[in-house]
Write a protein that binds this DNA or RNA. Structure first.
Lengths: 411, 411
DNA sequence: AGGCATTTGAAAGAGAGGAACACAAAACTG
DNA sequence: CAGTTTTGTGTTCCTCTCTTTCAAATGCCT
């Protein structure tokens, strides 16, 4: 149901752009495919596919190889494969206690990955940007780097505006109203588009494309760290909201009688299910971060009653909040990421029980709750997908301008 | 960011379909427009517009009239206008205490409207369907009816599945797991597509297309009656969820220490902001419905302290819940419908205050809260829009098959 | 080896929008 | 009031892209 402004007139060229995009998306998402498989999946004719593939081959973006005979009669269809070391993106992850930079090739292969630990203290944006720039320039020089870098995607643990990467609030990084996008542009000094998004949003994107939620078009990804973030995909589209701030489910009020949240509100969901809530309930000091949480999980695994009880209580609140989200979004899948992945085995039952109790039967019915499968790199992979997005949406633009070489030159 | 399955290959014909659709949407949404305005809005050339308009004219769907000279130099562009009595839809609204059927012409004009009051008792679906059928057959026979009816849209006050109109739960109608869609198909006996959706979802659609939210692509429509429903539009698309159950914000848990909700949960938002909450706080009996609520509003307008206090308390909870939704959706507009429209003047300030207090600053900043403008007919208008949707999305399909006549014949 | 199923490749065909030009109609201009 | 300017329509030709069609290629199966 597109609204007026988007429904701009289409031209013949639009068709070609859309079809090139469709083919590229197939290959990027599902890996190598035979020509005939592409025919089947796109609904185009063999000739059309032939022409379009030819264009990609001419640009050096894909290669065709003799198909391995697969036992069926008929002339075998050649396998079309993306050249993963021709075009790539830089993915950056800025988290509380770690900083990562990766190079990801078209098709999703992680070609190179650099991760450094950071102090859990407030670090100025400028310093962060400088560190990122250093890592990027290292990684770009290494042999794994592809011929052309076409964009930079950044995942940040904070409330961030999509349009320009302005970070309104990243409490755990100690940032408030920080122009991260601008600083990164300055520090990187590349003439590449830099797109920044919230880490949970990108985790959702990653799980949707390459993780536990492949093929699911309505899903919630809930990432539990010190803060609780949500990435939401509905109808196959990411929920971004008017400015890209959407998905801050951690600050959904669930308990008016609850404790004060650093955001200024009271009883936010993350005050009940965030890492600190777990630690305090387990008799430990708040602020311990992942390592302490890990200790609680180990304690629980060993049968420690206090730890088990703490995790159970978190699970109860987790399920309570999820019930509300299920009623609001009617998803078919909920993916638990971050530290929730670790406690999933312990809370699975409570969560299901809470959903049974607090969610409406109709939207609750089809919901499955599963742990994330991409682990710590989820948002990094999502950042890469984000950076690839313009390319996937309109590869024709790159092909025409011979960007393979020009983009490289500028990198 | 379309996912694999949707990104089907496009053909030349697709372009024509899309462009016909774009033109029709413009005319349907914004009313008559000059050819040159259409050129400007779609970005197509004059020749293309000429051809496409020609096709519509040939089908008798639009007419062109000599432009009234409007004071600007240059040759005036003829005005393109939809023939509102050629193609129309039937819109049905099934609410707790009222039942309405309307005929709406292409362009959105309500050509005819029949509304009957109902007892606030549980009425079997079969009876409801029969009444609807009766109203429909009356209205279709009246002179205002257009040549062709192309679909039926139904708004129902309950949790309903989009695919087949299965009502999982409509507590105020006394329905549970009722195949409303099927019953309506049987009762109406028309070979027309019948689409059923939740009344708040359709209220949102109506306000988005023809009410307070025109041109806004990220909005929440919150409708307060006995139950509280939400219609959500993000990125210009309706949020439907996996099965169309999405938007049940009334059952978002906001108060674990609250009262039991009929849905089986505790502390749902509607237990704090629904009509019964208002009535009880105002010292009246629950179950009084709209008329009693109206009495409370009048009492408040006259300065009655108990009524004012009750409304204020509802406003406080309203703002509290909205804050959570703002954090989740980052909308740019919140439209208050149903009884909330009436209490808006009284709660405006409290709501804003609560948002200030409980919503994150970044998503909160651009949010405006406004009353609905379409009043009681909002969901009826939305139902019409829903029924028009397939036609607007692919008018070529209808033109080719000469549906103007064939659809009429079947009605 | 020959038949069959499936696919590729090239050429011709069809559908749709773009560009350019002649002509039309209204509003300015002096 | 006649000429000029501006904006628009209709027409013709062109370009782009996919489809259709047919011959040739390839490898399984008997």
């Amino acid at each position: 149901m597109p609204v007026g402004l988007r429904a701009i007139g289409q031209r013949s060229e639009t068709v070609r752009r859309a079809n090139l995009s469709a083919i590229l998306r197939e290959l990027h998402a599902d890996g190598p495919a035979s020509r005939s498989a592409l025919v089947a999946r796109t609904g185009l004719t063999r000739s059309a596919i032939g022409h379009l593939i030819g264009e990609f081959v001419a640009a050096g973006l894909v290669s065709e190889e003799r198909a391995a005979p697969l036992g069926t009669p008929g002339r075998p269809s050649p396998l079309v494969r993306l050249e993963s070391n021709r075009v790539g993106v830089i993915a950056v992850e800025i988290e509380v206690d770690t900083l990562a930079v990766a190079i990801v090739g078209l098709g999703g292969e992680v070609l190179d990955l650099l991760r450094v630990d950071r102090e859990r203290t407030d670090i100025p944006v400028e310093d962060t940007a400088a560190t990122v720039a250093e890592l990027v320039s290292t990684v770009v020089r290494r042999p794994a780097a592809p011929d052309a870098i076409i964009g930079v995607g950044v995942a940040v643990a904070g409330v961030v505006r999509r349009t320009d990467g302005f970070v309104s609030m990243a409490p755990n990084l100690g940032w408030r109203d920080v122009p991260l996008g601008q600083r990164l542009v300055e520090a990187l000094g590349l003439s590449l588009p830099i797109t920044i998004a919230n880490e949970a949003d990108l985790g959702a994107l990653a799980e949707h494309r390459r993780g536990a939620a492949i093929g699911v078009s309505d899903l919630l990804y809930i990432s539990g760290e010190v803060g609780v973030g949500g990435g939401i995909i509905t109808g196959g589209n990411q929920l971004t909201g008017a400015a890209g701030y959407a998905g801050e489910v951690g600050h959904m009020p669930v308990n008016p009688q609850g404790i004060a949240c650093h955001c200024g509100s009271v009883g936010c969901w993350e005050t009940e299910v965030g890492l600190d809530a777990l630690l305090v309930r387990a008799g430990r000091q708040a602020g311990g971060g992942r390592s302490e949480a890990e200790a609680v999980v180990r304690e629980a695994a060993a049968g420690g009653p206090l730890a088990l009880q703490a995790i159970e209580e978190v699970g109860r609140w987790l399920g309570f909040g999820l019930a509300g989200l299920v009623n609001i979004f009617n998803p078919s899948l909920i993916v638990l990421g971050g530290s929730f992945t670790r406690i999933y085995p312990f809370v699975n039952e409570v969560v299901e029980h809470q959903l049974e109790h607090f969610a409406l039967p109709a939207p609750r019915l089809p919901v499955r709750v599963v742990p994330a499968t991409l682990g710590a790199d989820a948002s990094l992979i999502g950042a890469a997908e984000l950076a690839f997005e313009p390319f996937l949406a309109d590869p024709a633009h790159w092909l025409r301008s011979g960007a393979a070489s020009s983009a490289l030159a500028s990198a």
